[in-house]
Nucleic acid binder design. Structure first.
Lengths: 119, 119
DNA sequence: ATGATACTTAAGTGATTACTTAACTATAAA
DNA sequence: TTTATAGTTAAGTAATCACTTAAGTATCAT
Protein backbone atom coordinates (compact mmCIF):
# COMPACT_ATOMS: atom_id res chain seq x y z
CA UNK A 1 0.00 0.00 0.00
CA UNK A 2 2.91 2.33 -0.71
CA UNK A 3 2.60 2.35 -4.50
CA UNK A 4 -0.98 3.53 -3.99
CA UNK A 5 0.36 6.77 -2.56
CA UNK A 6 2.37 7.70 -5.64
CA UNK A 7 -0.68 7.02 -7.80
CA UNK A 8 -2.74 9.40 -5.65
CA UNK A 9 0.06 11.98 -5.85
CA UNK A 10 -0.13 11.85 -9.64
CA UNK A 11 -3.94 11.94 -9.77
CA UNK A 12 -4.44 14.87 -7.40
CA UNK A 13 -1.54 16.69 -9.01
CA UNK A 14 -3.14 16.13 -12.42
CA UNK A 15 -6.43 17.58 -11.14
CA UNK A 16 -4.71 20.57 -9.53
CA UNK A 17 -4.33 22.45 -12.82
CA UNK A 18 -7.28 24.37 -14.34
CA UNK A 19 -6.30 23.54 -17.93
CA UNK A 20 -6.15 19.84 -17.11
CA UNK A 21 -9.53 20.01 -15.38
CA UNK A 22 -11.00 21.62 -18.50
CA UNK A 23 -9.56 18.73 -20.49
CA UNK A 24 -11.01 16.13 -18.10
CA UNK A 25 -14.33 17.94 -18.14
CA UNK A 26 -14.38 17.88 -21.92
CA UNK A 27 -13.57 14.16 -21.95
CA UNK A 28 -16.48 13.30 -19.66
CA UNK A 29 -18.71 14.44 -22.54
CA UNK A 30 -17.06 11.93 -24.86
CA UNK A 31 -13.76 11.15 -26.60
CA UNK A 32 -11.80 14.00 -28.14
CA UNK A 33 -8.71 14.56 -30.26
CA UNK A 34 -5.70 16.54 -29.06
CA UNK A 35 -6.83 19.54 -31.12
CA UNK A 36 -10.33 19.28 -29.67
CA UNK A 37 -8.81 19.47 -26.19
CA UNK A 38 -6.60 22.38 -27.20
CA UNK A 39 -9.40 24.48 -28.71
CA UNK A 40 -10.73 26.15 -25.52
CA UNK A 41 -7.26 26.58 -24.01
CA UNK A 42 -5.16 29.72 -24.48
CA UNK A 43 -1.83 27.96 -24.92
CA UNK A 44 0.34 26.31 -27.54
CA UNK A 45 -0.32 22.78 -28.77
CA UNK A 46 2.88 21.40 -27.22
CA UNK A 47 1.71 22.73 -23.86
CA UNK A 48 -1.57 20.86 -24.28
CA UNK A 49 0.32 17.68 -25.18
CA UNK A 50 2.38 18.08 -22.01
CA UNK A 51 -0.79 18.39 -19.94
CA UNK A 52 -2.14 15.33 -21.70
CA UNK A 53 0.98 13.43 -20.70
CA UNK A 54 0.43 14.37 -17.08
CA UNK A 55 -3.15 13.14 -17.31
CA UNK A 56 -2.06 9.87 -18.95
CA UNK A 57 0.69 9.22 -16.39
CA UNK A 58 -1.90 9.76 -13.66
CA UNK A 59 -4.08 7.10 -15.25
CA UNK A 60 -7.03 9.50 -15.51
CA UNK A 61 -6.88 9.55 -19.32
CA UNK A 62 -5.68 7.21 -22.03
CA UNK A 63 -5.34 7.75 -25.75
CA UNK A 64 -4.64 5.93 -28.99
CA UNK A 65 -3.45 7.14 -32.33
CA UNK A 66 -5.17 6.30 -35.61
CA UNK A 67 -3.48 7.74 -38.64
CA UNK A 68 -2.40 11.20 -37.65
CA UNK A 69 -5.19 11.69 -35.10
CA UNK A 70 -4.87 10.86 -31.41
CA UNK A 71 -8.15 10.11 -29.66
CA UNK A 72 -8.35 10.61 -25.89
CA UNK A 73 -10.79 9.18 -23.33
CA UNK A 74 -11.17 9.34 -19.56
CA UNK A 75 -10.63 6.33 -17.32
CA UNK A 76 -13.53 6.57 -14.86
CA UNK A 77 -12.01 3.94 -12.57
CA UNK A 78 -9.09 6.28 -11.85
CA UNK A 79 -11.49 9.15 -11.24
CA UNK A 80 -13.18 6.91 -8.69
CA UNK A 81 -9.90 6.14 -6.90
CA UNK A 82 -9.34 9.81 -6.16
CA UNK A 83 -12.98 10.34 -5.24
CA UNK A 84 -12.91 7.36 -2.86
CA UNK A 85 -9.84 8.56 -1.00
CA UNK A 86 -11.61 11.81 -0.13
CA UNK A 87 -14.95 10.14 0.60
CA UNK A 88 -13.35 7.69 3.04
CA UNK A 89 -11.73 10.47 5.06
CA UNK A 90 -14.89 12.53 5.08
CA UNK A 91 -16.85 9.49 6.25
CA UNK A 92 -14.47 8.74 9.10
CA UNK A 93 -14.85 12.33 10.22
CA UNK A 94 -18.65 12.27 10.00
CA UNK A 95 -18.91 8.99 11.92
CA UNK A 96 -16.73 10.59 14.56
CA UNK A 97 -19.09 13.55 14.76
CA UNK A 98 -22.06 11.17 15.08
CA UNK A 99 -20.46 9.38 18.02
CA UNK A 100 -19.62 12.72 19.56
CA UNK A 101 -23.26 13.77 19.16
CA UNK A 102 -24.44 10.62 20.96
CA UNK A 103 -22.09 11.24 23.82
CA UNK A 104 -23.30 14.81 24.13
CA UNK A 105 -26.95 13.67 24.16
CA UNK A 106 -26.13 11.15 26.88
CA UNK A 107 -24.47 13.79 28.97
CA UNK A 108 -27.44 16.10 28.45
CA UNK A 109 -29.89 13.35 29.49
CA UNK A 110 -27.75 12.52 32.50
CA UNK A 111 -27.78 16.15 33.56
CA UNK A 112 -31.55 16.42 33.22
CA UNK A 113 -32.25 13.28 35.26
CA UNK A 114 -29.82 14.41 37.92
CA UNK A 115 -31.09 17.98 38.14
CA UNK A 116 -32.52 18.94 41.50
CA UNK A 117 -31.62 15.63 43.11
CA UNK A 118 -28.01 15.98 44.15
CA UNK A 119 -26.19 19.10 45.19
CA UNK B 1 -17.63 30.76 -11.16
CA UNK B 2 -14.00 31.62 -11.88
CA UNK B 3 -12.84 31.99 -8.29
CA UNK B 4 -14.06 28.45 -7.76
CA UNK B 5 -11.30 27.24 -10.03
CA UNK B 6 -8.48 28.70 -7.95
CA UNK B 7 -9.99 27.11 -4.86
CA UNK B 8 -10.00 23.71 -6.58
CA UNK B 9 -6.40 24.30 -7.69
CA UNK B 10 -5.41 24.82 -4.08
CA UNK B 11 -7.40 21.87 -2.75
CA UNK B 12 -6.19 19.31 -5.26
CA UNK B 13 -2.66 20.64 -4.97
CA UNK B 14 -2.90 20.29 -1.19
CA UNK B 15 -4.03 16.68 -1.56
CA UNK B 16 -1.29 15.88 -4.08
CA UNK B 17 1.41 15.51 -1.43
CA UNK B 18 1.73 12.31 0.65
CA UNK B 19 2.78 14.14 3.81
CA UNK B 20 -0.24 16.43 3.58
CA UNK B 21 -2.53 13.45 3.00
CA UNK B 22 -1.11 11.81 6.14
CA UNK B 23 -1.91 15.03 8.00
CA UNK B 24 -5.47 15.16 6.65
CA UNK B 25 -5.91 11.48 7.45
CA UNK B 26 -4.79 12.10 11.02
CA UNK B 27 -7.17 15.03 11.37
CA UNK B 28 -10.19 12.96 10.31
CA UNK B 29 -9.63 11.01 13.53
CA UNK B 30 -9.90 14.20 15.56
CA UNK B 31 -8.12 17.50 16.26
CA UNK B 32 -4.35 17.47 16.61
CA UNK B 33 -1.52 19.83 17.52
CA UNK B 34 1.28 20.71 15.12
CA UNK B 35 3.61 18.31 16.94
CA UNK B 36 1.00 15.54 16.72
CA UNK B 37 0.88 16.05 12.97
CA UNK B 38 4.68 16.09 12.77
CA UNK B 39 5.20 12.89 14.74
CA UNK B 40 4.74 10.32 11.93
CA UNK B 41 6.52 12.48 9.32
CA UNK B 42 10.25 12.20 8.59
CA UNK B 43 10.89 15.91 8.21
CA UNK B 44 11.66 19.03 10.25
CA UNK B 45 8.97 20.90 12.15
CA UNK B 46 9.18 23.98 9.90
CA UNK B 47 8.50 21.73 6.93
CA UNK B 48 5.37 20.44 8.64
CA UNK B 49 4.27 23.99 9.38
CA UNK B 50 4.70 24.85 5.70
CA UNK B 51 2.53 21.89 4.73
CA UNK B 52 -0.01 23.03 7.28
CA UNK B 53 -0.06 26.46 5.65
CA UNK B 54 -0.79 24.87 2.28
CA UNK B 55 -3.65 22.93 3.86
CA UNK B 56 -5.03 26.05 5.55
CA UNK B 57 -4.83 28.16 2.38
CA UNK B 58 -6.71 25.40 0.57
CA UNK B 59 -9.45 25.63 3.18
CA UNK B 60 -9.17 21.92 4.00
CA UNK B 61 -7.84 22.61 7.49
CA UNK B 62 -8.10 25.40 9.99
CA UNK B 63 -6.31 25.94 13.27
CA UNK B 64 -6.29 28.12 16.35
CA UNK B 65 -3.67 28.80 18.93
CA UNK B 66 -4.23 28.49 22.64
CA UNK B 67 -1.23 29.40 24.74
CA UNK B 68 1.72 27.92 22.93
CA UNK B 69 -0.24 25.07 21.35
CA UNK B 70 -1.85 25.26 17.91
CA UNK B 71 -4.82 22.92 17.47
CA UNK B 72 -5.75 21.86 13.93
CA UNK B 73 -9.02 20.49 12.56
CA UNK B 74 -10.31 19.50 9.12
CA UNK B 75 -13.03 21.41 7.33
CA UNK B 76 -15.24 18.64 5.93
CA UNK B 77 -17.14 21.10 3.73
CA UNK B 78 -13.96 21.75 1.74
CA UNK B 79 -13.27 18.04 1.51
CA UNK B 80 -16.74 17.72 0.00
CA UNK B 81 -16.08 20.44 -2.59
CA UNK B 82 -13.18 18.48 -4.03
CA UNK B 83 -15.09 15.22 -3.82
CA UNK B 84 -18.08 16.73 -5.60
CA UNK B 85 -16.06 18.04 -8.52
CA UNK B 86 -14.82 14.56 -9.27
CA UNK B 87 -18.19 12.92 -8.61
CA UNK B 88 -19.96 15.27 -11.02
CA UNK B 89 -17.57 14.47 -13.86
CA UNK B 90 -17.76 10.75 -13.20
CA UNK B 91 -21.55 10.96 -13.18
CA UNK B 92 -21.71 12.81 -16.49
CA UNK B 93 -19.51 10.12 -17.98
CA UNK B 94 -21.61 7.28 -16.54
CA UNK B 95 -24.88 8.80 -17.74
CA UNK B 96 -23.30 9.09 -21.16
CA UNK B 97 -22.40 5.41 -21.05
CA UNK B 98 -25.98 4.56 -20.03
CA UNK B 99 -27.40 6.45 -22.98
CA UNK B 100 -24.86 4.77 -25.21
CA UNK B 101 -25.95 1.39 -23.84
CA UNK B 102 -29.58 2.16 -24.64
CA UNK B 103 -28.72 3.15 -28.17
CA UNK B 104 -26.74 -0.05 -28.63
CA UNK B 105 -29.65 -2.13 -27.31
CA UNK B 106 -32.00 -0.36 -29.72
CA UNK B 107 -29.71 -1.06 -32.62
CA UNK B 108 -29.42 -4.67 -31.54
CA UNK B 109 -33.22 -5.02 -31.30
CA UNK B 110 -33.61 -3.32 -34.67
CA UNK B 111 -31.18 -5.76 -36.23
CA UNK B 112 -32.94 -8.78 -34.76
CA UNK B 113 -36.39 -7.71 -35.93
CA UNK B 114 -35.03 -6.92 -39.37
CA UNK B 115 -33.06 -10.15 -39.73
CA UNK B 116 -34.21 -12.38 -42.58
CA UNK B 117 -36.72 -9.82 -43.87
CA UNK B 118 -34.70 -7.47 -46.05
CA UNK B 119 -31.55 -8.24 -48.01
C1' DA C 1 14.13 33.87 37.32
C1' DT C 2 15.59 29.61 34.36
C1' DG C 3 14.94 26.25 31.42
C1' DA C 4 12.18 23.50 28.54
C1' DT C 5 8.38 23.30 25.26
C1' DA C 6 5.82 24.52 21.15
C1' DC C 7 5.98 26.59 17.68
C1' DT C 8 7.59 30.70 14.18
C1' DT C 9 10.41 33.36 10.92
C1' DA C 10 13.88 33.90 7.61
C1' DA C 11 16.88 32.68 4.19
C1' DG C 12 18.84 29.50 1.08
C1' DT C 13 18.85 25.41 -2.33
C1' DG C 14 18.05 21.87 -5.71
C1' DA C 15 14.18 19.85 -8.21
C1' DT C 16 10.00 20.21 -10.63
C1' DT C 17 6.39 22.98 -13.25
C1' DA C 18 4.20 25.14 -16.83
C1' DC C 19 5.00 27.17 -20.25
C1' DT C 20 7.55 28.98 -24.78
C1' DT C 21 9.57 28.74 -29.77
C1' DA C 22 11.68 26.23 -33.41
C1' DA C 23 12.25 22.36 -35.97
C1' DC C 24 10.60 17.81 -37.30
C1' DT C 25 7.60 13.57 -38.76
C1' DA C 26 4.04 11.27 -40.27
C1' DT C 27 -0.56 11.11 -42.73
C1' DA C 28 -4.20 12.74 -45.69
C1' DA C 29 -5.93 15.79 -49.36
C1' DA C 30 -5.66 18.35 -53.70
C1' DT D 1 3.68 15.15 -55.88
C1' DT D 2 3.16 19.16 -53.56
C1' DT D 3 0.79 21.08 -49.63
C1' DA D 4 -1.81 21.25 -45.56
C1' DT D 5 -3.01 18.87 -41.23
C1' DA D 6 -2.20 16.66 -36.72
C1' DG D 7 0.75 15.84 -33.68
C1' DT D 8 5.75 15.24 -31.77
C1' DT D 9 10.44 16.35 -30.00
C1' DA D 10 13.83 19.27 -28.11
C1' DA D 11 15.69 22.88 -25.65
C1' DG D 12 15.33 26.84 -22.86
C1' DT D 13 13.33 29.73 -18.95
C1' DA D 14 10.97 31.96 -15.12
C1' DA D 15 8.32 30.63 -11.23
C1' DT D 16 6.99 27.53 -7.71
C1' DC D 17 7.97 23.51 -4.60
C1' DA D 18 9.51 20.92 -0.82
C1' DC D 19 12.57 20.86 1.85
C1' DT D 20 16.82 22.47 4.99
C1' DT D 21 19.35 24.97 8.98
C1' DA D 22 19.76 28.73 12.09
C1' DA D 23 17.90 31.88 14.96
C1' DG D 24 14.07 33.68 16.94
C1' DT D 25 9.49 34.30 20.32
C1' DA D 26 6.11 33.34 23.32
C1' DT D 27 4.23 30.20 26.98
C1' DC D 28 4.42 26.94 30.82
C1' DA D 29 6.76 24.45 34.61
C1' DT D 30 10.15 24.49 38.36
Amino acid sequence: MQAQSAALDRMFHALADPARRVMVDRLTRGPATVSDLAKPLAMSLPAVVQHLQVLELSGLVYSEKNGRVRTCRIEPKALRTAEDWIAERRTVWERRLDRLGEVLLEIEAEEKSTKGRTK
